[in-house]
Write a protein that binds this DNA or RNA. Structure first.
Length: 908
RNA sequence: GGACGGUUAGCUCAGUUGGUUAGAGCACGUGCUUCACACGCACGGGGUCACUGGUUCGAGUCCAGUACCGUCCACCA
């Protein structure tokens, strides 16, 4: 077996094992009848994406779940893939073209889409490569892309089905228009941002009462040429006599009516509102109610058109705003202006204010809304943390139809064909169903020359909402069989961010319920059983990580620096369930240090003696002699079982950082700092050596299995270096013992854990600490030839004596002697009697007195508190007996200690 | 305007159903090349648990309210 090096160097180890795993197709998700399945679909990253810290957290968590499932003996499947990300990808490629001074229109639709495909073949795999660096154990043979031919067919089939089922319609409506991306957006893609603007107070002159005005406030004076009315509240006495009259529109002068509509807030500003149906959602509705004309003064790209009038036409919308304000000022119609903060909707992708715009779009009325609510409300799908279910339900309560068409070229082109020559703007609902006018189908019309296909593509989310089943061959029966659909669907757990509850999670649930296993129960149709929502990773100042702030560390740099395992361990350790995470590189460093500790403890084991048969728990147990056990052996086994149990509990509750912290404490403190240290004495004796080494093997084996999901590379390496499995098998082919199984295995070997041992070891630890502190007090910390005396009861001395060699070694002493009485030596009162430091020179009595007096004072405070509690009759009569007894016992111990210190003081 | 999170050591966070003297990591101080590890070991300093009331024998933990920070939802021009 290879020798373990002095420090852990992740780079080569990670490379080696990932290559081996891939070569063996070790992550293939296989249908194994009789075995439980565990499946996850990756939230497909944008094909344009590069790995961020968010991805690291998210995918590390999925990998942890999947690897743990394998160790638990389940057949695990993790499906990877990428999302074609319509707007994002198209934008990236257009930006490239712009460098060559070209636009997509220079190429035309077909050629441009080809260009995007070229780009995707070249660059689209980067993020998946990076996930491999992280150690993600995806079934790469099942990598999917939302624009793969089969996936695309699924997307289009769903469109056709939903159209046939009456959920999809086409209509002219107000949409959120992005003047940069030149497409409609769904409500979810609009980000409301507080924005500082100006509120302009503008007066409109009454046509039949020259010199009299009605005043309105607006933040958008450039839309005034689009005004078609002024509205007031029907019950507003100030304007009652004006309704029905006309005013002059102050820019692009024309007469417009004053109308009454309840949508107006009497309290806001002057209580009068300008109505611009083409450029505001509320105004549009008011316009519909009053049959007002629609005057659209903006081009698609946000530039004012000729309807805005000669002065404004050709100006970009913000320049137009300024110009409009100037025009109003010149004409004397600008009554005032004040700075004003309000919420403005921004395009998520392009980060510019969106324009409400009236356009023809395709809409989806969501199916299965009530079932989707029930699935979560009634616990068929469990959210972790649970509180997100409220957000989910609230959205579904107020759900609006989904605008699914996008005016892009990159995406799934909507499978609708219009008869050539048809006026699409006049299509009725009946026309859409008339196959002589419109065809909605997968194949398209049989006489394509007479038809034109819809130019729009589908919203990206209208493809990713099928991800949990379209990646498993749906709707093709043969492909589904091959993929093991019956076995792996519904998936077990979805790991994602709460920011896409609406975009993705809710929609997947509705899609699954609508399309999968019709007629079956909810549990059969839902796409996943658990949803784990991660926190958001922030920088040390608590800001979101973003490209523009440049505060996002590069995960690959971190992997180079600390190893993938170190990065994983570090990030998980600071990511408690559902809380946002403040990133600190020190924690990643801590992860690396832990790996090094694990490495060196294993190295120490290897250097300590011959390797025994490590091939199974039974083989290791066969090597140890329970009769040689001392308290430390019992205690560490008790800790091992407790740790195994608490990791089990943590997984059941999705408390990953708790699991990591438990393992850290167990391995570093209980095992390395104590057990390995006491082992050093045990290893000196042939009598205890074999058992001690076997026990170390047992503990390291179990620890590697417990840690493997978190830090897969180093555990795989050590698993082989220490011979826990055959050369040609991976650690994941082993099964992890549960706490119960481990206890059972020990029992069958005749080992029943002495639960009292743990408290004896705790006393020894405290005693050792106090002895070392006493040495430090007298500047002897580095001396190893110190002598200690002890005055102790027979029982305490028995413990000290039995552990004397360990204790002296740990404390750095050459002798521990029992004495009936010791005078004039510095002392500490330990749980195992009083220890005295034998000083060759005389003791500084004054200093020693002061030290003891200080301790006595602390003790007295504590005693006073406990006495007061016990003197309280209410406490004594009402507290449960266990608490009461605990307090009394504590008081007795404190008083004994106090008496001992007083005795020591008296002797000085 | 509504909903949800957070406030515990210098920093980042744990703290299970209320019960001994509130923990960890990092940082800090001191001492250590002790035959696994200086990516380490030992010892130590450091907290009015945001604030105000309440319930209780007992509150970091439960209840009410306040303040501040953050997130999401909502068409107020």
């Amino acid at each position: 077996m290879a020798e373990i090096t002095k420090s852990y160097e992740p780079r080569d180890v990670e490379k080696k094992w990932y290559a081996a795993w891939q070569a063996a197709h070790a992550f293939a998700g296989k249908v194994v009848p009789g075995k439980a399945s565990y499946s996850i679909v990756i939230p497909p990253p944008n094909v344009t994406g590069v790995l961020t810290m968010g991805h690291v957290l998210n995918n590390a968590l999925q990998d942890i779940l999947i690897r743990r499932a394998r160790l638990e003996g389940k057949s695990a499947l993790w499906i990877p893939g990428t999302d074609h990300a319509g707007i994002a990808t198209q934008t990236v490629v257009e930006r490239e073209l712009r460098k060559q001074k070209k636009t997509r229109h220079d190429f035309g639709r077909e050629k441009f889409v080809e260009k995007v495909w070229e780009w995707r073949h070249e660059k689209g795999g980067i993020i998946l490569e990076q996930l491999r660096r992280l150690g993600a154990s995806c079934d790469w043979d099942r990598t999917h892309f939302t624009m793969d031919p089969a996936y695309s067919r699924a997307v289009l089939q769903v469109f056709v089905e939903l159209f046939n089922r009456g959920f999809i319609y086409r209509g002219k409506r107000m949409v959120n228009w992005c003047p940069v991306s030149l497409t409609a957006l769904s409500d979810e893609e609009v980000i409301m941002k507080p924005t500082n603007g100006t509120l302009y107070k503008v007066r409109y002159e009454l046509v039949d009462r020259p010199g009299e005005y009605i005043q309105v406030s607006t933040t958008r004076p450039e839309t005034i040429p689009g005004d078609v009315a002024i509205a007031v509240h029907p019950e507003d006495p100030r304007y009652a006599d004006l309704v029905g009259k006309k005013v002059w529109r102050p820019i692009n002068r024309a007469q417009i009516p004053i109308i009454a509509d309840a949508a107006v807030d009497k309290e806001f500003g002057s209580g009068a509102l300008k109505i611009t149906p083409a450029h505001d959602k509320v105004d549009y509705e008011v316009g519909l109610r009053h049959k007002l004309p629609i005057v659209d003064v903006l081009r698609a790209d946000g530039v004012l058109n000729e309807l805005a009038g000669a002065e404004l036409a050709g100006l970009e919308r913000f320049a137009g705003r300024k110009k409009a304000a100037e025009l109003l000022k010149e004409s004397g119609n600008l009554v005032g202006e004040e700075s004003y903060a309000n919420n403005v909707g921004y395009s998520e992708r392009a980060d510019v204010p969106i324009e409400p715009r009236l356009t023809e779009q395709w809409w989806l009325r969501y199916p299965r809304i009530e079932e989707a609510k029930a699935a979560v409300r009634d616990g068929h799908i469990k959210f972790f943390p649970e509180r997100w279910s409220k957000v989910y339900l609230h959205w579904l309560e107020n759900i609006q139809d989904w605008c699914i068409s996008r005016q892009l070229w990159w995406g799934h082109r909507i499978p609708v064909w219009y008869r050539k020559g048809l006026d699409r703007s006049k299509l009725t609902e009946a026309d859409l169903r008339d196959t002589t006018k419109v065809q909605v189908s997968l194949e398209g019309p049989s006489d394509p020359e007479n038809w034109e296909q819809e130019e729009d593509v589908l919203d990206t989310w209208a493809s990713s909402w099928l991800w949990p089943f379209a990646t498993m061959g749906w709707p093709n029966q043969n492909e589904m069989k091959k993929a093991g659909f019956d076995y792996f669907y519904p998936t077990t757990t979805l790991v994602t961010g709460p920011d896409i509850i609406f975009f993705w999670v809710a929609r997947m649930i509705m899609a699954g319920l609508e399309f999968i296993r019709p007629g079956e129960s909810l549990d059969q149709r839902i796409p996943f059983k658990n949803v784990y929502f991660t926190g958001i990773i922030r920088d040390a100042q608590g800001r979101k990580m973003s490209k523009s702030l440049g505060n996002s560390p590069d995960p690959l740099t971190l992997i180079d620096k600390y190893g993938a395992d170190g990065l994983r361990f570090g990030i998980i350790s600071i990511a408690p369930q559902g809380q946002d995470i403040r990133f600190q590189e020190e924690r990643i460093e801590g992860g690396k240090n832990f790996c090094n500790k694990l490495w060196n403890a294993s190295r120490f084991r290897q250097m300590s003696g011959e390797a025994g048969d490590n091939s199974s728990v039974a083989a290791i147990l066969a090597r140890l002699e329970p009769s040689k056990f001392d308290a430390d052996d019992h205690a560490i086994l008790e800790r091992l079982i407790a740790t195994t149990a608490s990791v089990e509990k943590a997984f059941a509750e999705f408390e990953f950082s708790a699991a990591v912290q438990t393992l850290y404490g167990f391995f570093w403190n209980d095992f390395c700092d104590w057990y390995v240290e006491v082992s050093k004495a045990k290893l000196q004796s042939a009598d205890t050596k074999t058992t001690c080494l076997a026990l170390q093997d047992l503990i390291i084996r179990q620890t590697l299995l417990l840690l493997h999901p978190f830090i897969p590379f180093i555990t795989e390496e050590l698993w082989h270096l220490l011979g826990f499995g055959p050369e040609n098998a991976f650690i994941e082919e082993a099964r992890i013992e549960t706490a119960a199984e481990l206890s059972e295995a020990l029992k069958s070997r005749g080992i029943s854990i002495d639960t009292a041992a743990a408290s004896a070891v705790e006393k020894l630890k405290t005693t050792a600490s106090q002895a070392r502190a006493l040495k430090a007090e007298f500047n002897l910390a580095s001396r190893r030839d110190v002598r200690f005396f002890a005055t102790a009861s027979d029982a305490d001395w028995a413990v000290l004596d039995a552990n004397a060699s360990k204790l002296t070694r740990m404390v750095g002493a050459n002798e521990l002697l029992r004495k009936a009485k010791v005078d004039g030596a510095p002392a500490v009162v330990t749980p195992l009697g009083t220890l005295y430091l034998d000083l060759a020179s005389t003791v500084d009595v004054a200093a020693e007195k002061q030290r003891l007096a200080k301790e006595l004072e602390k003790l007295q405070q504590h005693i006073a508190g406990t006495e007061a509690r016990l003197a309280n009759t209410a406490f004594v009569s009402k507290a449960p007996p266990a608490v009461l007894e605990g307090a009394r016992k504590q008081l007795a111990e404190l008083q004994a200690k106090k008496a001992e210190i007083e005795r020591l003081l008296g002797g000085l």
